[in-house]
Design a protein around this nucleic acid. Structure first.
Lengths: 213, 213
DNA sequence: ATAGTTTTGTTGCATTTGCAACAGACTTTT
DNA sequence: AAAAGTCTGTTGCAAATGCAACAAAACTAT
């Protein structure tokens, strides 16, 4: 018996190990460029090697929602973001990116020995996908902007293991991620500062005290 | 090479096949009973054989959010709902349930031959998790109650392959799932009926015309 | 250095949403 | 058959949110 999904994150060292096995194609993208369109035909898996990218969907009326954001080591691809084929799901470069592209079948297949490299990558993908979606649901599920912000801040704080942290998203993008009006969010941020719950300047935040709601 | 994740759903016939391999423990629960607490220590995987159950989280202030709902064949367990250890995540019986319980390690391990039974179950679990989370994010991400409802209805309609369908949740529960006030949701439902966008009585819905927003 | 672009920050106002509370319909249990 | 519980449906009112619009700051590219 060999455990398929040990709880190990995907780091750069590991990625280097995988390279030999997967023979990825490396490509570069500059800000605003579409890295991948997550439609059902797409068979690629992307691994972000540098830069940042967003998974974005835009409804006909122009409302933009950031579904996910990717940094070094993050994996994305249709299979891990099953889209519904209504609105387009795009992975767009936020800052200049280099990306490894691998064939989906290649990654997701089990070679004769169930080699650990495959297993590790699959594990990381699944884990990443699950955690991210879960976090997003938890944040979006809060009933007020205030609660959404605090929930998100709490998670980032926990991930960074510090009460002071820089958000992985700009405030504009954060509004799209938590799916609220930006100005309303700014107003709420101001309140949180006034009430000394947090101190924040742009995307640098310090949580001063834990509050309920 | 053997493909790990073919896009095949988990049905009753398949489950029967798995039984011999997994030797699940069968248990029954009546309405309101806690089937599973999804904390980090929990090593079980549950498969709902009959009845319905909800994955629920309740914040300190009593706000209840339905994270997911399960019907026959659905799989749940900590690994597929990575909880954050802030709020408790509970799987609660909504209607009398019978559940198969299997050890997580057993399910998630790769036996010598990477047997197809394991592979199929893993596939189903991952797929279920991914799709459900994705749907939920998509619905919660809409900015208004109206848009949330229409988005959700659209998805159910698509899944049922019919413009007339019965929701898998009661209206009260639907409000908790889309994370809005129930009375406000009822008000919006009434509007949608008045505007002849839908016809609905309780959880029976017919979509009359496609609308933007 | 400068022009262009993006991001942050702010406000007034209209609209939407949530809250509280209640009544009737429907289910389940005793 | 009655009682208890849940679910649906409704409303007035207060509060939160979204929209529109603008100014200043910060960042990028030439």
């Amino acid at each position: 018996m060999k455990t398929l999904y040990p709880l190990t994150p995907l780091n750069k060292t590991k990625l280097d190990e995988f390279a030999a096995c997967f023979k990825p194609v490396q490509r570069s993208y500059s800000r605003g460029e579409i890295i991948m369109q997550l439609n059902n035909d797409n068979k690629s898996v992307g691994i972000l090697m540098s830069g940042t990218a967003h998974l974005v969907t835009t409804t006909f009326d122009g409302t933009r929602t950031i579904i996910d954001y990717f940094e070094q080591g993050d994996v994305f691809g249709r299979r891990f973001s099953p889209c519904t084929q209504i609105d387009p799901y795009l992975v767009v470069a936020k800052k200049s990116c280099t990306v490894w592209l691998v064939d989906y079948e290649k990654v997701i297949s089990c070679c004769e020995k169930c080699c650990e490299k495959h297993i590790g990558l699959i594990d990381s993908m699944i884990l990443t996908m699950a955690r991210r979606a879960q976090l997003h649901v938890e944040v979006l599920g809060k009933r007020s902007i205030r609660a959404k912000l605090l929930s998100y801040f709490y998670h980032v704080s926990k991930a960074r293991e510090s009460r002071t942290f820089t958000l992985p998203l700009s405030l504009s993008d954060l509004a799209d991620y938590i799916s609220v009006d930006r100005s309303a969010m700014m107003r709420e941020l101001k309140k949180l500062n006034n009430e000394k719950v947090i101190v924040s300047h742009a995307s640098k935040v310090t949580i001063l005290r834990d509050v309920t709601v």
